[in-house]
């Protein structure tokens, strides 16, 4: 089975995110970049499936991003992925989500695929759009926010649990399908030392837009970021104090009712 996993290089969740001086994006100096948290679940799910199927199943990583993305691709290879395709082109510095979809879909189609795993969203721009665009471009079903995944006994269909407000949906899908993973679907493994050594020898194929047969940016210029805005400063916190805890709590309850008018 040809298993595809998608990954994106993003700032670490603990990073403080600030706007750059030109106001055109974020400051990247001093920011640690990692594999998109949710994509780690996708990689793990792909590796688990490969281990279960055995034989000539193969996990190929696809990453669209700047040159520095090689580092996170190597991490995925060290976790156990077999090889990788890195789409890297100066024209793709900050692509609109559907541009990313069109480029990735073309690269995946060229490679051939049976199933695609990725995270439910990038923790940087939070659009959760790329997967829908890929699914549409490839003409395959999509199942988002997966909290569990298995193949049916005969291996012809995917059985996927999906979290929705207030419940869990159980979905049965034909293959191929793109499955986007949520936290909790698995515990991503750490790269082992032998894994890291092996990863150095694994192949990363670099592709430009021209390599993929695009004469120009697909679906270029559909949306434009006009402005980056910092968050408004939070108000002053009113500390509620009293000699006795019970009096302080009583005062808090009163403030919530009379001042905040929330109760």
């Amino acid at each position: 089975m040809k298993i595809i996993v998608l990954l994106k290089r993003v700032p670490d969740t603990e990073a403080k995110i600030l706007i750059n001086q030109e106001g055109t994006g974020i400051r990247k100096d001093g920011v640690k970049f990692v594999i998109n948290t949710y994509d780690e679940y996708g990689i793990e799910e792909g590796l688990k499936l490969k281990e279960k199927l055995g034989g000539d199943s193969k996990v190929t990583v696809f990453c669209l991003g700047p040159e520095e993305s090689t580092e996170v691709i190597r991490t995925a290879l060290a976790m156990g992925a077999d090889d990788a395709v890195h789409i890297c082109d100066p024209a793709l510095e900050s692509p609109a989500p559907f541009t990313t979809s069109a480029v990735l879909a073309k690269a995946i189609k060229d490679e051939g695929f049976d199933i695609i795993f990725c995270g439910k969203q990038g923790i940087d721009d939070d659009t959760a759009q790329v997967q829908g665009g890929i699914a549409e471009a490839l003409g395959i079903p999509q199942v988002n926010i997966a909290s569990s995944f298995e193949l049916s006994e005969d291996g012809s269909r995917a059985l996927i649990g999906r979290r929705i407000e207030g419940g869990n949906e159980k979905i049965e899908s034909a293959l191929p399908v793109i499955v986007t993973c949520d936290k909790g679907i698995n515990e991503p493994r750490y790269a082992s030392l032998p894994g890291i050594m092996k990863a150095k020898k694994k192949e990363i194929r670099t592709r430009t837009l021209a390599d993929l047969g695009f004469d120009e940016m697909p679906a270029a210029g559909r949306s434009k970021i006009l402005k980056w805005l910092p968050l408004p400063k939070g108000g002053e916190c009113r500390m509620v104090e009293a000699e006795e805890v019970s009096d302080a709590v009583k005062e808090l309850a009163r403030l919530l009712r009379e001042e905040a008018k929330i109760i």
Partner: peptide
């Protein structure tokens, strides 16, 4: 909001 609300952006369509 982007970066889970650490910042926000204003965006418009082109075309």
């Amino acid at each position: 909001p982007v970066y889970s609300g650490k910042l926000s952006i204003e965006i418009a369509a082109e075309g």
